[in-house]
Design a protein around this nucleic acid. Sequence first.
DNA 1: CTGCTGGGGTGGATCGTTTCAGCCTTCTGG
DNA 2: CCAGAAGGCTGAAACGATCCACCCCAGCAG
Lengths: 349, 349
Amino acid sequence: MTRPVSIKNVAERAKVSVGTVSNFLNRPEALSPATRERVREAVEALGFVRNESARHLRAGRSRTVGLVVLDIANPFFTDVARGVEDAASEAGLSVIFCNSDGDPAKEGRYLEILAEQRVRGVLIVPADGDHERIGALRDRGVPVVLLDRRAARSGQCSVSVGDVGGGRMAVEHLLGLGHSRVAFVGSGEARQVADRLRGAQDAVVATGPGGAALKVIETPTLNVAGGRSAGLELAATPRSGRPTAVFCVNDLVALGVLQALTQEGIDVPGDVAIVGYDDIDFASAAAVPLSSVRQPRQQLGRAGAQLLVEEAEDPDHRHRRVVFSPELVVRASSAPAARRRRQVASSAI
Amino acid sequence: MTRPVSIKNVAERAKVSVGTVSNFLNRPEALSPATRERVREAVEALGFVRNESARHLRAGRSRTVGLVVLDIANPFFTDVARGVEDAASEAGLSVIFCNSDGDPAKEGRYLEILAEQRVRGVLIVPADGDHERIGALRDRGVPVVLLDRRAARSGQCSVSVGDVGGGRMAVEHLLGLGHSRVAFVGSGEARQVADRLRGAQDAVVATGPGGAALKVIETPTLNVAGGRSAGLELAATPRSGRPTAVFCVNDLVALGVLQALTQEGIDVPGDVAIVGYDDIDFASAAAVPLSSVRQPRQQLGRAGAQLLVEEAEDPDHRHRRVVFSPELVVRASSAPAARRRRQVASSAI
DNA sequence: CTGCTGGGGTGGATCGTTTCAGCCTTCTGG
DNA sequence: CCAGAAGGCTGAAACGATCCACCCCAGCAG
C-alpha cells in the first residue's frame, strides 16, 4: 500500500542521478562496478519495478502486440494463439489476447483499445469483409497481419492455409468413396467458410453433369451446438434424399453433427460419412474418430507473429502472403471404399 | 506512417488549449456547444486516438487486468477466461491473457510483465505452492485474486470449486456402482490435483478396512497425451489386478485414458469405468460419452473478476473466499448399477 | 455603476522514464 | 607538463495526457 517506487527513489537511495539508474537498467556494463553494486542494492531493497507505461511513452512504441481471434473456445484458435505467444515472447513482446466472437462491433472495440495501447502491431483473424477499422490502423502506421485469411491486396501481410484446396480435398475424398449426395455444413461471412465451400463445389462440379450434388446446410453458429442443430435437420430428412456424406466447415460443427446423428440412430459412417476441418485434438477422441483436414495451427500463429515483428522492425519490409497447405487425415468417420460401395449397391435395390 | 497525432495537434487545429481538448475527451458536457463541435471536428479530421500510456502514467493506474492460467489449450480455462473477460469489459477493463503452462518460472516472468504494466489487478490460477512473487505483487498494492484455488490465509480473495468434495463425489459414485479397485489418474503440484485426490481417498477410506482400494497412476502431463500414456499403463496391467474404475483429474486426461483403453481392446465401461473432471463440452462428444464432475467455469471467472474489481475500487474491501459446488454428471462411461453388478458377479466366478 | 457569481477556457506542473549534451577526473602520449 | 581522449556520471528536456489554480467576461442584483 506504500507509494509506488520510482527510479527517483532508487537514485536517492543509491546516491546517484536518475540517469545513472536508467543506465543501470538498460546498459549496466556502462557503470563502474562500485556504482553498479550500489544501484543494484537500492533496486533490490526498494523492490523497484520499471513502469512500462512511462518507458513506452518516452520510447513512442510499446512492447506488446494484439491478437484478435474469432472464438477463444475453439481449440483451433488456442493453438494458433500458442504459436503467436511463443514467437512473440522470443522477440521480447507480450501479447494482448482478444476474442471478437465473430462480431464486427466487438472486433472494432478491441481494435480501438489496441490502438489506444499503441501496440507494436496486430494479428487478426477478421470477423467479416468490412475492414475499415483495420485500414485505419494501418494508415496510422500500425502493422497488421491477417491470420487464416489471405490478404486481398498486397498492402499487408497474411498467413493462411489454402482453404479452397482443403475443401476440395475433403470432398474429393468423399466422392472417391462413392458418395454422390454430399452436404456442406457451415455458415457465416468469414472467408474461410466461403473458400472451403468453393473447394467443395469445385470437386463436385468436376464430376460433370449428372454427377454428384452438393447441398448446403446452414448452422446458427460454428460450434458444437450449431453442428448439433444441423445434424438434427439432416436426420429429419427422409433417407432417400438424405446426403450420405457431410463435409463440415470445422471440427466443432462436425462433432455436433456426429452427436446428433448418433443420437437419432443414424450410423456414422455406415449411413452418413463425416469429414471435419482443423483436426483439433478432440477430433481423434470423438465417438467415431473424425476424419479431418489438418491445418498447421501453431505454425500459422508463429509465422504470423514473425511477419509482424519483421514488418515492425524492418523499414523496407515487403509484404508477404504465406500460404500453408492443409492435409487430409482419414479416420473412421469416413468409411473405407470397400464398405461404402457395398452400401451404395444395397441401397440401390 | 505520419507522426502520431497528439492532443496538442488537435488543440492547434481546433484553436483551443490542450486542457480544453482533454475536457472534451473526459467531460464533454463542460464545453460550450460551439467549442465542442470544433474539437470534435479536429479529432475526426486528424484521426486522433488517445494514448493510453500517457493517460495511465498520469493517472497512476491502468485500465487492464492480468489473467494467468495453467493451460490455454484446456477448454476449462478458456471458459474461465471468457467469464473473466465478460465481467472485466463490463467494468471497462481489458484483459491481458497469459499462459503459464504450469511452469513457475514462466508464471514468474508473466507476473513481472504484469507488474511492469502496472495492471489494476491480477487473476491467477497458480502453478504451484511457492507464491513469493504473488506475495510481492500484493505487497506492492496490486490486488490478486486466486482462481480455482482456495486462499490459504484470509489475506486475499479467491474463487474456487470444492475440489475435495468433487473428488469424493466422483469416487462415491464409482463405489456405489460396485467397484472396489479404483484408480486415480493425475499428477503435479497443483492444489486442485491434491484436493481431488484427497476427496477420492476420503471416499475410499469411508468404505472401512477390507473395503475398496485406491491406486494412483501418475501422468507425465495433464492433457490428452498424458491420459493416453496412463491408459496404456493401465491396459498393460494384468486383468486380475487392474482397477475396474478410473477417476481422472480432468477431462483431457480422461479422454486420453479412454482412447488408449479402447485402442487396446478394453471396453469402457464394461471392463473399466471412467469419470472425468470439469465437464468440458467435449466430454459428452467422446467415443463413450464421459461422466464428469461439472464446474461452473464461466461463473468462476466472472466472480473472480468481480471480486478483483471490488478490491481495486473499494478501499475498505474485505477479502472473501467464494466456493462453488461441483456437480456430478453421469454418462455412459460409468456403467449403470445394474450392469456393473452383473459384471462383478461374472468376474468373481 | 459596482461588485459578485459562475460558466468557459487557459497554461503550466506533473506522472516516470529515456536520452543526450556536457561536466569532471583520470589516464596517455608527446 | 600539457593537450586530448575516454570513462563515468549529472541534470534537464521530452514524451502525451490530466489536473488545477487562475483568468476573463457576461449577466445580474443592489
